[in-house]
Amino acid sequence: MTYPKKIDLHMHTVISDGTDTPSEIIEKVKEKGIELFSVTDHDAVKSSALVKQLLKKGDPAFVPGVEFSCKDSEGRYHILGYNYDIDAKPITQLVNTGHNYRIEKLRKRLDFLESEFSFTFGKQDIDALFSLDNPGKPHIGNIMVKYGYAKTKEDAINNYINRFHSKNEYVKPDDAIKSILLSNGIPVLAHPVYGRGDELILGEDLVYRIKKLISFGLMGVEAFYSGFTSKLQNEVLSLAEEYNLLVTAGSDYHGKNKMVTLGDTNLNSEENYPQSLKRFIDMVYNKK
């Protein structure tokens, strides 16, 4: 079969922390000439459901996606889920659990801002926050700026919101992987060398992590990623080969929130794709 020339399997919409709506992102994917794409919002499957409905005949091929923020005693992981059944119970339940954790965290943060700095907000703004699909620090920050509590969103996050520390509940990586598998999806570790945020995981640590996640049922790794140097990319590719994992390619596009170009995955379409990537594409095409 001929494989799509341009692929981007990792991007965010306004449903989480991106700035494009699902219909905007479809337009941009088309503009970039991407032939196979997935929308992977944090802890949300809603955008994938929306995109699926919006797509018309002749539009690029689409794979439902999601990115779960996970944590266990040994660190943080971003687990991508692909090509799951959108209505499947296990994944929607996990999304709800994640959403509840976030709502709980939002409540704690607002309490902290009030008790520590006496920042209070009107009911309308608070209701608006809680009605968001994925309320996070930037959303609180924006409202603080509106009330004059902080000069900028960054000022709000760095000098006030980040002072709050608490033990938050997180989705566990094994729960995320199991839910994806039980929903007929493909669990993939996002940008493996970057745990989350500031972590850099290389060498033995990376092998240990991947082996552990494989024991939970991990099927693939994101080896082509906008934020990888060729050295990092090769490290992930060779691990994928060693452990017989599938490979995906994603930009992690966030709209205006990050300076990542949509479609930038460092995958060279002129070269023959590695078998591990071809296998992934075969799997998602055959399911349709």
Binding site: D198, E199, L200, G227, V260
Partner: peptide
């Protein structure tokens, strides 16, 4: 410089 910082440099490089 953390990995978040490295990614900034990579984007500037691009």
């Amino acid at each position: 410089i953390s990995s978040a910082g490295l990614r900034v440099i990579l984007r500037v490089k691009k």
